[in-house]
Amino acid sequence: MTYIRPAFKHPHLPKNQIGYTAKDYEGSLSTLCAGCGHDSITAAIARACFEMNVQPHKVAKLSGIGCSSKTPAYFLGNSHGFNSVHGRMPSVATGANMANRDLVYFGVSGDGDSASIGMGQFVHAIRRNLNMVYVVMNNGCYGLTKGQDSATADLGSKSKAGSINPFQAIDLASLAVELGATFVAQSFSGDKQQLIPLLKAAMNHKGFALLNVISPCVTFNNNPGSTKSYDYVREHVEATGTVDFVPEKSEILHSQEEGTDKYVEMHDGTYLKLHKLDQHWDPEDRISAASALQHARAKGEILTGLLYVHTGHPDLHDVLGTAGKPLNAMLEKELCPGNEALQEVNAGLR
């Protein structure tokens, strides 16, 4: 039995700008089922971090409970991690983010963790525009407890045991658009070409970025009749377009501008290059995004790609007017400014 990854690596692996190879962004060996979509997503996250030249110690991974929530052990082995209570990852992420605004926050959750037990937490994290990447590894079933339908299983989807799901699915992307999330994307674990640029864009987005990733459960939900199987998703996927993350403005000037290309400036001067496949959809228009999602749903299609983005919206730090420095970078003098400052605060409350 080989649950040990050999220590050897390819001798000529490319390095990123800060001198790390993609290997340096890996975690320990996955214990999920062979072929699990979640493993592809974690590989995509590791790749995105490599390509974004992120220092591994500048990343925090947070999760709840479930197959999806085990995955932070399987990527970025040198980053911070917190495996929290079922459905409570957004609270922990909020606390961590408030204490240290300098890290990249990956919240990793599943359809059970987000759409059932954690629904209350999920919607409020969106409402507060917490600056994080919220990845839902969505397989439409409870894989850890033998594959019962979850709240995101589509109406009429057939389980491995043959039963038909009688309930409406919660559409997390539509919900997020409705709640005012500032970055909403949908993708498929089997399409890294689309997923990696989306993750990079989400990492660079200031505010709440939801990535709802359909991730087939090979063991319990990859059967004919399931709407979350590899085959079904590949047949019904409808991409809004392609997204590229453009770190330098100068690159834009050199590229061929096409009628369907659109550039969205992000908070730090970087750009998203969107190549739209559908002329009628405008990713910066919430109504257009909501309508595109509803149309796709009516046609039985899974709309993927960047669905909605709104830059410049204040995130939770902006709204609360928190200090610009992480708490762990402050000295005692700043953290405890003394009696005079306390009196001032008290006076302000009288």
Binding site: R5, P6, F8, K9, H10, L13, A22, L29, S30, A34, G35, C36, G37, D39, S40, T42, A43, S189, G190, K192, P216, V218, N222, Y230, D231
Partner: peptide, 15 residues
């Protein structure tokens, strides 16, 4: 092959 990429992700030497 169902193209789940699992082999590509796991390969320790990126073959």
């Amino acid at each position: 092959c169902i193209e789940c990429d699992a082999c590509m992700d796991i390969c320790p030497t990126n073959c």
